[in-house]
Computed example of a mutant assay.
Amino acid sequence: MFGFRSSVKKVAGLLLAGLMASGAVAVQAQVTHRTRRESSANRKARIARTTAETYDHRYEVAGGGGYMRFKSGSLLQRNNEVTFWMTGTYFLNPKLGIIGEVRGAYGNAKIANNLGSPVTLPFNPQISQYPFLGGVAYRVYAKEKIAVTVTGEGGAALGKFDGDAKGFQSKDIGVWQDATKPAFALGANFDYNFYPNIAFRVSPTYLATFFRLDPLDLTHGPQSTIQNNFGVNVGIVYRFGKIK
């Protein structure tokens, strides 16, 4: 009888220990689940704070370099140009901003393809353009790390086309006449945010200019035209100040 009671006690003890262990595991699982849920909530709150801090800056300055394809005369092939750009933006709210921008582009006109010219140069003269633009920017996508902004700008572009032509004038070699003409640009800024106030930017851009041939040039195509120029700019963005 004593042995039977001892066995019953042992079995009861084992069952009790199992129940207590099961309860501890259940409690631990609940605590772990609650901790994970709280971590996810904290992460979302942190991302929301960082996003709000990033796009609550009043001012944005940016600059860098790039590449553009430019048509330097009515009958000339397009040439490659290296570019620089500097821009400043004043944000009225986290989405809408006012832009001011300065650009520069440098390349060599392809005079060897100048049909009908009595002048043959042993080199391709350097040309340059300097657009001065202003307009608006609108953020269409804004997350913690990525932002997309579309831009529209208008202004004027200063063109210098025959300064490197060894004494020949634009009408002799078929490039545009030196002048300041209207210009406008459309683009999109793709920003990757390293920090709330610093980002890396890639900007595909379209630039329209309205340079003309010299009025005395009767051999190199239409006097009035529009140059449809496409390129891409890259650079660094710095944000500061607060909207609110």
Rank of each mutant, 00 (worst) to 15 (best):
A208N: 03
V237C: 04
P118K: 09
R212F: 01
H57I: 04
G18P: 02
Y192G: 05
R239M: 06
G97N: 00
T83Y: 10
I226V: 13
A26M: 15
K181V: 02
I111Y: 00
N197Q: 12
A156K: 04
G221H: 11
G235I: 11
D191P: 08
Q177I: 12
D191E: 10
V148L: 15
I99G: 06
T120Q: 11
Q28P: 00
M20Q: 15
A62R: 13
A199V: 05
I243D: 07
F70Q: 05
P222G: 02
K181E: 08
Q129T: 10
S22C: 15
S74T: 09
V61K: 12
T151P: 05
G107V: 00
D164M: 08
V11W: 14
L96N: 05
G13K: 14
L186C: 03
F230R: 12
K160I: 15
K181Y: 00
G107A: 01
D217Q: 15
T219Q: 07
I98V: 14
T83M: 14
N114M: 06
I146L: 14
R212D: 07
N197I: 06
G163L: 13
Q169S: 08
G159A: 08
I236W: 09
A137Y: 00
R36F: 10
A156R: 02
K171C: 03
S39L: 13
F84A: 14
F210A: 07
F168A: 01
L96F: 07
K143V: 04
D178I: 07
L115G: 08
Y55L: 03
R49C: 03
Q169L: 09
L218M: 10
G134E: 07
R43K: 09
Y106V: 11
N108I: 01
L216H: 10
F184L: 04
K143W: 08
